Amino acid sequence: MPAEPANPLGTFLRDRRTRLDPAAFGLGGGRRRTPGLRREEVAQRANISPTWYTWLEQGRGGAPSADVLNRIAAGLMLTEPEREHLFILGLGRPPEARYRGAEGVTPRLQRVLDALSPSPALVKTAIWDVVAWNEAAAALLTDYARLPPDRRNILRMMFSDARVQAAQEDWLNVARSVVASFRAEAMRAGAGAEIAQLVDELSHTSPHFAALWRANDVVGHAEGVKRLRHPEIGPIELEFSIFAVDGRPDLGMIVYNPISSEGADRIRSLMAARSERRRAELHSPA
């Protein structure tokens, strides 16, 4: 079994540097003795001293700062998992979270959601914008496709949509739990600016939200039981679990499993009725 390198940070930097194509950066300069970029070229791209970068590859000069690692990650065009690995090697910890919005999911993840039917399932961002869902979620929870993207936010719907509020068995306790869970998750994702904007909006439009936000409660909410009163199929009880999306720490997938087989059958009947209504709309005269 090969021994671990004595300088894993330097080994990783050197490996990524030699994989880069100089021509892609306008750095042809004729035939090179070694592949990839030179150390001074990486240092220039990262806006740091060539000597300091050389020392990092050689395992000298002490631990780099987070700012230096971020500059090197940009200079080496590291992916997000590679950047996280760079921080673990250099500082012994992952980088601080950097929130990035999401406009959708990969076709593969959408197929996963679709395969979970009749369990409603959706994918949300760290600020709880719903970016993907399956047919069961559209039938039982909300027809997200009929909403503009900026209205597909779980908090906005919880505090401004009378239909969503009426569907909760105990709306106030559900709302309290949702706000406390949102606070923990959004802050962990580094979405401070996005939180401030959403909180300001909801605090002005909903006194209930303003009071719950001032309470400063923080809870984890990875699993639990959800009880709904649906206008077509009546009361239904579901277990829910929240899963991280690999490679996208800012996304979470929520799956609601009907507790009974009778509940699953009622969701199937709801989906069938919804599908029939859509077909009728398509064939109705303009």
Rank of each mutant, 00 (worst) to 15 (best):
E4Y: 03
P8G: 11
L9G: 07
R16M: 15
T18D: 06
P22W: 02
P22Y: 07
A23K: 07
A24S: 13
F25R: 08
G28I: 08
G30K: 04
R31N: 00
R39V: 09
E40L: 07
E41K: 06
V42C: 12
N47S: 12
I48Y: 02
S49C: 03
P50V: 08
T51H: 14
W52A: 08
L56N: 06
G59K: 02
G62Y: 00
S65M: 04
S65E: 09
D67S: 10
R71N: 11
A73Y: 00
M77F: 03
E80S: 13
E84W: 01
L86N: 09
L86V: 15
L86R: 08
F87D: 11
I88P: 08
G90E: 13
G92F: 05
A97T: 01
R98S: 08
Y99R: 03
R100W: 05
R100V: 05
G101F: 01
E103W: 00
E103C: 03
D114Y: 04
L116Q: 15
P118V: 08
S119I: 09
P120D: 14
P120S: 12
A121H: 07
L122D: 01
K124S: 15
A126K: 08
A126I: 03
A126H: 04
I127E: 09
W128S: 13
D129L: 06
V130T: 10
V130W: 01
A136F: 06
A137Y: 01
A138M: 09
A145G: 15
L147F: 05
D150V: 10
I154G: 07
F159D: 14
F159T: 15
F159Y: 15
D161I: 07
A162N: 13
A162P: 15
R163D: 14
Q165H: 11
Q165M: 13
Q168E: 15
L172V: 10
N173Q: 12
V174A: 12
A175E: 10
A180V: 10
S181W: 08
S181N: 13
F182E: 13
A186M: 09
M187Y: 03
A189K: 04
A191I: 01
E194I: 02
I195Y: 12
A196I: 02
T205L: 14
H208G: 00
H208C: 06
F209E: 03
A210S: 14
G220T: 12
H221V: 00
V225P: 00
V225A: 08
K226F: 05
E232V: 13
S241E: 15
F243D: 01
A244C: 12
V245D: 01
P249R: 09
V255G: 06
N257C: 10
S260L: 06
E262G: 08
A264Q: 10
D265I: 11
R266V: 08
R266S: 09
R268L: 10
L270N: 08
E276N: 02
R277D: 11
R279L: 13
